[in-house]
Amino acid sequence: MALIQYLFKQNPMKYIYDIQQLMSNKNLMLVYEGEFTQEITKSVLSMTERNLESVGEENNIKRKVFNVMVECLQNICKHADSNENITEDKGAVFMIGREDGNYVITSGNFIGNDHVPKLKEKLTHINSLDKEGLKSYYKELIKNSELSDKGGAGLGFVDIARKSGSKLEFDFERINDQYSFFSFKTKISKED
């Protein structure tokens, strides 16, 4: 290891090795950074599906992973549209990996500071609910949301909590006066 580090010390291409090592150590199957669109969502989904199929993953786990991925990716897509005030660092990141027998789906994107309290409150509320509580919250939201709002009534996060069966992990890192970086993590247990 020491020799490798020495050889790479002044190497401008070392970042490639660093990324390979990071992905390998973190068991990351897929990392995507950049612009998020429906086309990108479809590509990321089909790549992950093929990956899960090639390792012979169980159908119900595959479906849950797929489900959580769709909601995460479409959340970022939807959010990117309403984020015109953020001019720099508009990119977002999406990752899926394995950790201690779980699939771990993570995403990160910039959001306006003014949106932070409401989102934090929503996620905290979801985490305070048990299985039955989540079910009735979901039904309440679906009944009362408007047809025109493209499902943006926060159903996505509730659905992620229900399908994953685990608490939502999140963090808001304040970047400057205008915006913060929202990190979001969901675990899907491979044992039911």
């Binding site: 479906r63 489900n67 769709v70 679906i142 047809l147 493209k150 499902g151 159903l155 996505g156």
Partner: peptide, 13 residues
């Protein structure tokens, strides 16, 4: 086989 939450509202409708 699968539907997203945006579709779920429309399926209800």
């Amino acid at each position: 086989e699968y539907f997203n939450t945006a579709s779920s509202k429309l399926i209800l409708d």
